[in-house]
Simulated assay, not measured.
Amino acid sequence: MFNFFTDGFKRWNRYNTTKRELDLLTDRELADLGIMRSDIPRIARDSVSR
């Protein structure tokens, strides 16, 4: 049961870290990466689902 909570926390932390780092990029930097600002939540979700 403890692993369930620690795994959930790790996934939540990875999601927030990914989202925060992408949010800090300018629109130009995101465009260079082929990412639209509206794609950020999906990309962050995808980073924890693997």
Rank of each mutant, 00 (worst) to 15 (best):
L33Y: 11
Y15K: 07
R28T: 11
M36F: 13
R45F: 08
M36H: 14
G8S: 12
Y15D: 03
I43E: 02
L33W: 13
E29K: 06
T26D: 13
L33F: 07
W12C: 11
V48I: 11
E21H: 08
R11D: 05
L22F: 05
V48N: 00
N13P: 02
F4A: 09
N13M: 14
T17E: 08
L24I: 07
D7P: 04
R37G: 09
F5T: 01
M1Y: 06
I35S: 04
D7H: 12
I40Q: 02
R28Q: 10
I35K: 06
L33A: 10
S49P: 04
R45D: 11
R11A: 09
M36I: 12
E21R: 08
G34Y: 00
G8V: 01
W12H: 13
G8A: 00
S47Q: 07
G8N: 03
N3Q: 14
Y15M: 04
F2Y: 12
S38R: 15
E21Q: 11
I35F: 14
F5N: 02
E29Y: 11
M36N: 15
K10I: 01
R50K: 12
L22E: 03
N3I: 07
D39K: 00
L25D: 06
R14P: 00
I40R: 07
R42M: 13
R14D: 10
R28V: 14
W12P: 01
F5E: 04
E29R: 11
R20W: 10
L22Q: 04
D46I: 11
D23I: 10
R42A: 10
R20Y: 12
T18R: 00
M1W: 15
D27M: 03
G8W: 05
R37L: 07
K10Q: 06
L30F: 01
L22Y: 03
L22W: 08
K10W: 02
A31P: 04
M36S: 15
K19M: 06
R37Y: 09
S38K: 15
K10C: 01
T17F: 05
N16K: 15
I35P: 05
D7I: 04
T6I: 13
N16S: 14
L22N: 04
P41S: 03
K10N: 06
M1V: 08
L33G: 07
S38E: 15
I35W: 08
G8F: 11
D27S: 02
F9R: 05
M1D: 10
R50F: 14
R28L: 12
S47W: 04
T6Q: 07
D46Y: 12
D32V: 13
L25N: 04
F5G: 01
T26K: 03
F2V: 13
S47N: 09
S47H: 08
P41N: 10
S47L: 03
W12Q: 13
G34V: 00
L33I: 06
W12G: 10
N16L: 15
D7T: 12
F4W: 08
L22S: 00
S47K: 05
R20E: 15
S49R: 12
S49W: 12
F2P: 05
